[in-house]
């Protein structure tokens, strides 16, 4: 039994790790529209692809959940120049990171 739960935990860990940079879902878009009314899953996915393509060059991608939204609001502007982002790109990446790093409690899942 204990062996089973260890195996189970490892599987879950593997599954969770593969989505260290989670793909946006409908729930994410719903949450995001509260901050930015015209945000869709596509908007957030666009933010994710920009994040993956523009932020992985100098260091391994930082999983969104590593930092709080407040911290991301400091980190992204700091990195904007380094990653040569224009305002639109910065905005998309910020929306994605804030959405993906939002605190999730049981009620929200």
């Amino acid at each position: 039994m204990q062996r089973m739960s260890v195996i189970c935990l490892m599987l879950v860990a593997t599954a969770a790790c593969t989505s260290a940079v989670p793909v946006p879902t409908g729930d994410d878009a719903k949450w995001a529209t509260r901050q930015w009314p015209e945000t869709s899953v596509e908007t957030l996915s666009g933010g994710r692809s920009l994040y993956v393509s523009r932020c992985a060059g100098c260091h391994a991608l930082v999983p969104p959940a590593k930092h709080s939204g407040d911290r991301w609001l400091q980190e992204v502007p700091r990195m904007t120049q380094r990653a040569h982002l224009d305002d639109g790109e910065r905005d998309l990446i910020t929306r994605y990171l804030l959405t993906a790093s939002r605190p999730r409690d049981a009620a929200q899942r």
Binding site: C8, L9, V12, A13, A16, C17, A20, C58, H59, A60, L61, V62, P63, A65, K66
Partner: peptide, 17 residues
């Protein structure tokens, strides 16, 4: 189960310059 797994994943994924 997910929480410790997620915590495990986050540990140590650090920017490499």
């Amino acid at each position: 189960r997910l929480l410790p797994a997620a915590a495990l994943c986050l540990l140590g994924v650090q920017p490499a310059l």
